[in-house]
Simulated assay, not measured.
Amino acid sequence: MLNALEVFTTVVVGLMVGVEFSVAFVMNPILSALPEDSSQAAHAHGGRMLGAVMPFWYIGSLVLSAVWAIAGWHHEGTGLVVTAAGLLIVSVVMSLLLLVPINNRNKTWTPENRPADWKEQLNRWERFHYVRVAVIIAAFTLLVTALV
């Protein structure tokens, strides 16, 4: 049973990393290359879409990692899992304090009501997102290491 939990947790976190990596290094550059109104509308739509799913994914990944750490407390690699869970906590806190407030504003913007500094706000979100991606990649790496 513990083996199934370990594999499932690693897959869930790995998929989350893949999505967030893709947002940072594939989707955002594509959306930013669109004409201004289309770019802003696409970012807002992406914010609504992913903003509805990602909280469950982040919290679910954290819970799965915590359950793995508790269930495998006396097994090898538990320190790595605990550290990974700690990094996932950092990613959730970062999200709540830094990224979600910007995303909540962004997802309501239209070309008619967006603020003058909308590009600067999106750039700030992207910088925070790069850091968050690095944090979750580190967590994923630790989980994979603990798994093997």
Rank of each mutant, 00 (worst) to 15 (best):
A44N: 12
K107N: 14
V63C: 02
V19Q: 10
H75L: 11
H45P: 10
S38E: 13
V13Y: 00
P115G: 11
K119A: 11
E20W: 07
S22F: 15
E36W: 06
I89C: 15
E120Y: 04
M16H: 10
V92H: 00
A139N: 04
P29R: 01
S39I: 00
F25S: 06
V92M: 03
G86K: 00
L5M: 06
N103T: 10
L50P: 08
T83S: 14
A69R: 01
P111R: 02
S91H: 03
S22K: 03
N113T: 09
V17A: 07
Y130A: 11
L2A: 07
F8I: 13
D117I: 01
I70S: 10
V13I: 04
V92I: 12
G47W: 04
T10H: 06
V7A: 12
A66Q: 03
A24P: 04
V82S: 14
L5H: 00
L50V: 05
T9V: 01
E120D: 13
I59D: 05
A44L: 05
V93E: 07
V148S: 13
T78V: 10
V93H: 12
V133G: 04
V82N: 03
S91P: 15
A33G: 10
F128W: 09
L64T: 00
S65F: 02
M94A: 13
S32M: 14
G47Q: 09
F21T: 08
M16D: 12
L62P: 00
L5A: 03
W73Y: 14
